Every structure is written in C-alpha cells, then in structure tokens.
Simulated scan of single mutants.
Amino acid sequence: MKNLLSIEALTAQEITAIVELGADLRKNRAATPQVLTGQTWALIFNKSSTRTRVSFEVGIRELGGSVMFLSGADTQLGRGEPVKDTARVLGRMVHGAVIRTYAQADVEQFAEYSHLPTINALTDEEHPCQILADLQVMHERLGGWQGKKVCFLGDGDCNVARSWMWAAARLGFDLAIGAPKAFQPPAEFMEKLGTDKVVLEEDPAKAVAGADVVYTDVWVSMGKEEESAQRIEILKPYQINAGLMQHAAKDAIVMHCLPAYREKEITDEVLEQHADVIFHEAENRLHVQKAIICWMARGEG
C-alpha cells in the first residue's frame, strides 16, 4: 500500500483517480470492495474531530476492516514517547494508520518508521482528505474543475487553504485567496508552490469576483484559541454573506469544511441557502476516505 500524506505529494492523475473513485463509491455504497478484510487500522487523533473520525471509522468497517481509536491521552505519545518508537510498535501489530495531529513531520516520521500505509487526517500544514472530498463535490456538482475559479476566504495560510493551493497547482484551476496581508502565506511558500494559478488578494470583493466556488473555514483553528478576538476582528470583512456573494458567478456554490460558526466566517442565511452542497460535501468525507484506502490498496497512480 501507498501513503496519503499531502496534496503536495500527489500528481494530477492521482488526485483525479481518487476523486472519481470516491464518486463511484458514493453512487453504489452497497458494493464497497472488501479490501481491508482481516485488517485492523489505528486512528491516532491528537485533535478533536467529528466528520474525520466518523467517516474513517465507518469507512474502514465498510471496507471490511476493524478500527482501533486512540486519542493522545490513550497512548504514550501523550507522555512524550517519540513518534518513531510508537510507530515501530504499531507497525508490528496493526495494518494501517490514520493520524490527526499538529506537526506534518510527525505523520511523515510515523509512515517512515512504521512501514504502515499511513493517512494524514489533518496536520497544521495540510488537510488533504478534506480537499479531496471538496474536489469530489466539484466533480459531481460542477462537472469538474477545469476552467473553474475557486475563492478561499479568511485565514489564507491555514492547512485547508494550503491544501487548496497545492490542488490548484496540480490540477490547473484558478484559485483566489482572499485574506488580509497578515493572513496570507509567506513568499517562500508561494515560491515553492510555483504556479500562477493562485492569486493572493486583500480585497474580498475582488477575490470573489466571478468565482464558481466560494469557500471558507473557521477563523480560529485548533491551537489558536488565544488569538480568537483578534482574528475575528481582523477577518470580519472576509465573511461570506449575501452582499459578497453578489460578486461571485451567478450559479456559484458555497462550501465550508465545517464546523461552521454562523455570523462569523459565514452568515446563517448563506449557509442555509447552500446547506445542500455543504452537507453533500460533509458526506463526501466518507466516500473519499474509502476511495483513498482503495487507491492505496490497489497501488493506482
């Protein structure tokens, strides 16, 4: 099996294969292939979760496997055991791992030392599973991403925004990051990204102009709670509301990776108007997680 550690590490062909497989699995859930029969997978979560945990637990079971959930407090990682030591133990006992934690390096080190198929279920650097589910929405609702414009509003240097940027770089669609200067990715990251498909824009109306997808995430990510009041004040102009949506394409869809804090990053009115898409997006987490594991098991590229 392969690993799924980041969007950055994927090719356009690999992203497309996972998204199309996820769409197929959504259409025919009852025919889920039993690629994990006889296997036990560990979910190692150092950050709280609803959609990620439920989708992986249900998905692994539907693929024929068993699941062991381990929070940070459940393991010696919570007492300071090195990641590489935990990895070498679990690598001798379970068949795969899904990790939701802070440092990207921890996920990469776990994969290296465990020799297990490893999935990044969120780090501070990337959230690849979320963006694959989002791309599946574009595939199903918009017919794909070619010729489309996505606008991400809010903290433009968060893990979700960074994964969107890598997706645009790999797939070639246009992406506008609407964020104040202090919340834009640094020059070094943009240089590493190496694409003209991603535009940084401080004016939210210009960022949204003509967008087919208007996207946001929470303004206060886990670990940033002490900055809550300051972040909310600075990011107010980037709220998705009815006025801002007037600048988007006529049939634009709104997406939110959830949980949503209504009247902060998005108004209740707009969220409810686009609830069908937003909760379709949430459901896609199940189907794309299954697709990721099937793709890893088949060694597709």
Score class of each variant (00 low, 15 high):
10 L>E: 12
11 T>H: 08
21 L>T: 09
21 L>A: 06
22 G>K: 07
27 K>R: 15
39 Q>H: 06
39 Q>Y: 03
41 W>F: 14
43 L>E: 14
46 N>M: 06
47 K>W: 01
48 S>D: 14
49 S>F: 04
52 T>I: 04
53 R>W: 01
54 V>F: 01
56 F>G: 00
57 E>A: 05
63 L>V: 12
69 F>C: 08
71 S>H: 12
76 Q>S: 15
83 V>S: 08
84 K>I: 06
87 A>E: 02
88 R>E: 10
90 L>F: 00
90 L>M: 15
92 R>Y: 04
95 H>M: 00
95 H>L: 02
97 A>K: 01
98 V>K: 11
98 V>Q: 08
100 R>G: 04
105 A>E: 14
105 A>N: 08
109 Q>K: 11
110 F>C: 07
112 E>C: 05
114 S>E: 09
115 H>G: 03
121 A>M: 07
122 L>R: 13
126 E>S: 10
129 C>G: 11
133 A>I: 02
135 L>S: 14
136 Q>M: 15
137 V>Q: 12
144 G>N: 13
154 G>P: 13
156 G>I: 05
159 N>Y: 11
163 S>D: 10
163 S>E: 11
164 W>N: 01
165 M>H: 13
168 A>L: 06
168 A>C: 09
177 I>P: 00
178 G>N: 09
181 K>T: 14
184 Q>E: 10
190 M>S: 02
204 P>C: 10
205 A>Y: 15
206 K>C: 04
210 G>R: 15
210 G>W: 12
210 G>I: 05
232 I>S: 00
235 L>R: 15
242 A>F: 01
243 G>T: 09
247 H>T: 01
250 K>M: 01
269 E>G: 02
269 E>D: 15
271 L>N: 08
272 E>V: 04
274 H>Q: 01
274 H>V: 02
278 I>K: 11
284 N>S: 02
287 H>V: 03
288 V>P: 11
290 K>V: 03
292 I>H: 09
